[in-house]
Amino acid sequence: MIGNPPQQSDKLDHETVFLEDMGIGDRWFSPWRDISADDVAEFAVLTGDNDPLHSDDALRSPFGEPIAHGLLGLSVLAGLSSKHPNAATLALVGISDWQFESPIFFGDRVQVCTEVEQIQQHGRRSGRVTWIRQLINQNGKVVQRGRFVTLVATRLRARHPSGRDRSKSLPAR
């Protein structure tokens, strides 16, 4: 359990958050998302993972009912956190220390808590941000957690997306 949820960052979700806008400890919460049996079935078709744990055959499993794929939970987390915050992300460079703490059952509601853990400059136009991300169910229980590492643009990069001078015209052919 995460206990009392921490306060959400004052930064608005819809505003683009650049490297300079971030501080250690900033947090955001995503909206809630329901995990349905259809989501699990479609994920199984997409990935080819048809383990009986994810179907009605799971009634004889240690969980006593079907559960969602762990990687479906991770994928939902990635999607929910992509706009909460709406960071000026250039690339995902790593996922580490990922833990599947508890199963996600059909019908569970989940949301993501994202916190800035570390910021390192990465050249003049971007930074390497380490985020702690937690997937939390409707009961306040953390079902998955770990770290994402991304490159985030600075405002300078947003103003000058490439090193080329776009004001020069190309020679006629």
Rank of each mutant, 00 (worst) to 15 (best):
T154L: 10
S61Y: 15
N137S: 03
T16I: 15
T154Y: 13
L170S: 06
R125M: 04
L80C: 11
R109Y: 05
I67D: 06
Q144N: 06
Q118L: 04
N86G: 13
R128N: 02
W32G: 00
A87M: 12
T130M: 03
L77V: 08
H122V: 03
Q118N: 08
R133N: 10
Q121D: 13
V116W: 01
W28V: 01
V149P: 11
A158I: 01
H69Y: 09
W98N: 05
I95P: 01
E42M: 09
G79E: 04
Q121V: 10
R159I: 00
Q134A: 08
S162R: 07
E42N: 09
S102P: 00
L53F: 14
M1S: 14
H69G: 11
P52K: 11
L92K: 04
D165E: 10
E101D: 09
G23Y: 01
G23R: 11
F148H: 14
L46H: 02
E42V: 01
R173D: 08
S96G: 12
E117T: 00
E20Y: 13
F148M: 08
P103T: 07
S167L: 02
V142M: 06
A88M: 06
R128K: 15
K83L: 09
L19M: 07
L77I: 07
N137F: 01
D38E: 13
K141S: 13
P6I: 13
V76H: 10
P62I: 13
R159A: 15
V17H: 03
S30H: 02
R155G: 08
S55W: 07
D49Y: 06
L151S: 02
R155P: 05
G140T: 13
A87P: 02
D10T: 11
L92Y: 12
E15P: 04
